[in-house]
Every structure is written in C-alpha cells, then in structure tokens.
C-alpha cells in the first residue's frame, strides 16, 4: 500500500495537521497497524520536496508536528493517476510454505503434517476474523472478508498440495 498516495488522498478533502492525518489514516485503514509519527513526517517531507503538498501554516509553539499541510494541483493529479492505475496482482510465486513442504519431502519428514498444522493455523486465523466480522460493522466485515478470502485461497492450496503430495514426493526424489 502506498502510504504517500493514501495521505495525499486524505488531504484532498482539506488541509490537515500531521497529527490529524495519522488519526484519519489509522481510523480508516490502519486496523491492525497504526502509522508511526515518524513515518508520517518522513512521508510528508518527501511529498513536500516533490511539490505534491505545501505547508499551509504552522501553529505557534510548534515542533515539527505542528505543520498544517495542503495538497497542490500536482498532488491532486498524482492521486488521480494512482487511483486510475490498476494494481499489479500479487503472484505469490515465492512461497515459504512451498519451500517448507519440499524441504520436508527431501529430508523425509512428514510433509502432510506440516500442511495439516498450517491448515489448523489458517483456520484459527479465519475463526478469529469471522468472530470479529460477526461483531463488527460493515467496514469490519469488508476488511475481514478480504482477509478471509485470501486465507481461503491459501487453504485451497493446502488441500490441493495435500492431495498431490505423493506425486510431488516422486518428482522431488528424482
């Protein structure tokens, strides 16, 4: 996720303080991982340098956190371009799990066990997400569903791999 673009986008509705920006971000997108202040300010100074934002004013008694930022025309254009550019689908070609399974097979360990344990772990996560979804509002449900679908995809892979373990073992052994 591009934090720079996200912050820019938040500025489009009007100038804000860095502190406000962090709060708005956390509230809407930062469910699990709140932004660090440092992250906000380093990002803002980069945007400032690139001319995408400008300082709208500094409150008295100010440390660096008392700056008020506003988006520039170039900034608006940049946000627009970002939104219009499709994200490159994640391909997950580098998979730790796959590596683990192959290694287990190479070392004659129980690969099915690895898969089962992993599946239990995935389900545990899914159960937590489902529970949170049950209690949460629509935003919670959407974000949890996104995660659930990804986990489900992993689980499907686990199932498929479990069903193909024998074949895989034969190929690895060659």
């Amino acid at each position: 996720m591009s934090i720079g673009h996200t912050l820019l986008g938040l500025l489009e509705s009007g100038p804000r303080h860095g502190y406000d920006l962090k709060r708005a971000f956390d509230e809407k997108f930062g469910h699990d991982r709140p932004l660090h202040y440092g992250q906000v300010y380093s990002t803002m100074s980069r945007l400032l340098k690139n001319g995408l934002v400008e300082v709208d004013g500094i409150e008295s008694g100010g440390g660096p956190e008392r700056k008020r930022y506003a988006i520039t025309d170039a900034g608006v254009t940049d946000v627009e371009r970002w939104l219009a550019t499709p994200e490159k689908p994640e391909e997950y070609l580098q998979s730790t799990l796959y590596t683990k399974v192959v290694l287990a097979l190479l070392t004659h360990r129980d690969a099915a066990d690895i898969l089962d344990v992993q599946r239990a772990e995935h389900l545990r996560s899914m159960r937590i997400l489902t529970d949170r979804k049950r209690r949460g509002d629509l935003a919670d449900q959407l974000i949890c569903d996104h995660a659930l679908f990804h986990l489900e995809a992993d689980l499907r892979w686990l199932e498929l791999t479990a069903a193909r373990l024998d074949k895989l073992r034969a190929e690895v052994a060659r």
Partner: peptide
C-alpha cells in the same frame, strides 16, 4: 469450505 468451517469453534479433518 474453510469459510464455512470458520464459523465453528474447532474442526476435525477427515481424510
């Protein structure tokens, strides 16, 4: 379906 199973407290796998 894992997403349905996620509504459970615990799961048992039959293979």
């Amino acid at each position: 379906e894992a997403r349905v199973a996620a509504w459970s407290d615990r799961e048992i796998v039959v293979r």
